[in-house]
């Protein structure tokens, strides 16, 4: 009798975590056009339908979609957030409220994300994962994007699809600052090590990278910093010299384009400086961005060819 009472009481306690799921919808893809009035388009995983709504703020997303659909919105199952306008303005709130998982993908759409989703022109989360897996772009999930905004230099990079290929868009809290080149994207992907296969074309044949060991060293002369990227790369290629030149081009672009041109710390240069004993001067994100623009950058590559026989 005691155990029955205890079981019943404990069961009641556990049931307080439940809500009625019969009238609940879970969007797996959400498109947000952020502007003076925010437009939402959500793809519902249960019935593959689209719901459109609008509200005064991106943070009113569940209410707006609930009003439009007449069902309770369970917003914690998003696998892809596609944003146009200012993609970073509300990302922190979406992650803090657990509407977007830290491992969820964030995609910047230059024109209208809602129109892209409605017209079927939006890539899927699986396509983004495949682009990461093939080394076209680095992995830039919500946690990486948010980490750069909160703990980096305040400028981050998001996946962007231009209709033909994936690229990266540099953005801060106010909006998009520009795009990275294909070489920079591939160099960042190579250094990120989230790829399963990394290959690129040469004059004849292809080069396939099998292993990368890279480390960034920091030097200081006066107030000027120097970042040196040292990489040991193993690959299979018929033209090692050409492969090394291409890889050097990719890595130099990855190191200098975000940091020197835009002041974006995508390669954890700040943490590398702390590790190497460079004492950080307390300052705002703008000061940190200026330090990166004024720093010097060097690349050292040692290529080793891996025999396939």
């Amino acid at each position: 009798m005691k155990n029955a009472v205890l079981s019943a009481l404990f069961g009641c306690t556990l049931l307080t975590g439940c809500t009625d799921i019969r009238n609940r919808l879970s969007p797996d893809v959400l498109a947000v056009d952020a502007g003076s009035r925010t437009q939402f388009t959500a793809h519902i995983s249960q019935d593959k339908e689209l719901i459109s709504a609008e509200a005064d703020s991106p943070l009113l997303m569940p209410d707006a979609l609930q009003t439009a659909s007449g069902a309770e919105i369970s917003a914690g199952h998003l696998s892809l957030l596609a944003v146009s306008g200012s993609p970073c303005a509300f990302l922190r709130d979406y992650v803090s409220r657990q509407w977007l998982a830290p491992t969820g993908h964030v995609l910047f759409v230059p024109d209208s994300a809602c129109a892209a989703l409605s017209g079927g022109g939006l890539p899927t989360a699986e396509q983004i994962a495949a682009a990461v897996s093939s080394g076209q772009v680095p992995c830039r999930t919500a946690d990486a994007v948010l980490g750069d905004l909160l703990g980096g230099s305040g400028i981050t990079a998001l996946h962007c699809f231009d209709g033909k290929a994936f690229t990266l868009a540099l953005a801060d809290q106010n909006g998009v600052l520009g795009m990275l080149s294909a070489d920079a994207c591939r160099g960042l992907a190579l250094l990120g090590k989230r790829w399963d296969c990394f290959s690129f074309a040469q004059t004849t044949g292809i080069c396939t990278v099998t292993a990368v060991r890279a480390r960034i060293y920091t030097g200081q002369s006066g107030k000027a910093l120097t970042f040196t990227l040292s990489a040991d790369i193993t690959c299979r290629t018929g033209q090692p010299a050409e492969a090394e030149a291409i890889l050097r081009q990719m890595l130099e672009a990855a190191l200098t384009e975000p940091a020197q041109n835009a002041g974006a710390d995508l390669l954890f240069l700040h943490e590398a400086a702390l590790r190497d004993g460079i004492r950080e001067e307390a300052g705002s994100a703008e000061i940190r961005q200026q330090q990166l623009r004024n720093a010097g950058y060097r690349t050292e590559i040692r290529l080793k060819t891996d025999s396939i026989w």
Binding site: R92, S96, P102, D143, L146, G147, D148, L150, G151, G152
Partner: peptide
């Protein structure tokens, strides 16, 4: 990593 500036429960993060 850099998300240490994100408030909330760090273990569940």
């Amino acid at each position: 990593g850099r998300l240490l500036h994100l408030t909330g429960n760090p273990f569940f993060l």
